[in-house]
């Protein structure tokens, strides 16, 4: 129960932080860190897969409503969440892990956590950028934006992890 509560607090805090602060941060005239993805990155490993998708959808939609981009974050989050179990399986065998464990920097280790975040954020950003641009014109320019923004978001996620979840 306590754990569910901490997830809810994280949800509210990070959505507010995203909408009120990070949506207004504009690095190099273009890039936005999407720190709210931490909400989805930190859902328990053994969460039901359909529930993971639903939470992804709700989180994305909430951010959408406050960004005038209805559906775009939601779609990106749902796809990223669909891939999340497979990404975690790349580093750890899901079945061997203890019940109720949460993917955080402390037990993932730095290098796996960076890769885990990079992959998740990259999938999210592919959908997000192509849906918001809504064209495959200038494919490589969009791809460049995706890659740079992935690095920026990942950097912010890692900083967040180091601040709050590096040690138990």
């Amino acid at each position: 129960m306590n754990k569910i509560f901490s997830h809810i607090i994280r949800f509210v805090a990070l959505v507010l932080l995203q909408v009120l602060v990070f949506n207004k941060v504009l690095l190099f005239e273009h890039f936005n860190p999407y720190l709210y993805l931490v909400i989805l990155l930190m859902l328990p490993v053994h969460i039901k897969h359909w529930l993971l998708l639903v939470i992804g959808f709700v989180t994305g939609l909430t951010v959408d409503i406050f960004s005038c981009s209805l559906g775009i974050h939601a779609s990106a989050c749902v796809l990223a969440c669909a891939f999340r179990p497979f990404i975690i399986n790349l580093f750890h065998n899901e079945k061997e892990l203890k019940q109720g464990i949460v993917p955080e920097l402390a037990w993932f280790g730095m290098s796996s956590y960076i890769f885990y975040t990079l992959l998740f954020v990259f999938i999210h950003h592919i959908v997000f950028y192509f849906l918001s641009v809504f064209t495959f014109d200038n494919f490589f320019r969009t791809l460049f934006y995706i890659l740079v923004n992935t690095l920026i978001t990942t950097l912010f996620v890692i900083i967040y992890q180091m601040l709050f979840h590096s040690r138990k």
């Binding site: 897969h49 992804g56 994305g60 939609l61 939601a74 779609s75 796809l79 669909a82 849906l131 809504f134």
Partner: peptide, 22 residues
């Protein structure tokens, strides 16, 4: 196959929202 179906339903809703609000 709840995973696949949830995915398809949610993805359809969000893309529909994205396209129509565009």
């Amino acid at each position: 196959h709840n995973f696949i179906f949830t995915f398809i339903i949610l993805q359809t809703i969000s893309i529909w929202l994205a396209v129509s609000s565009n």
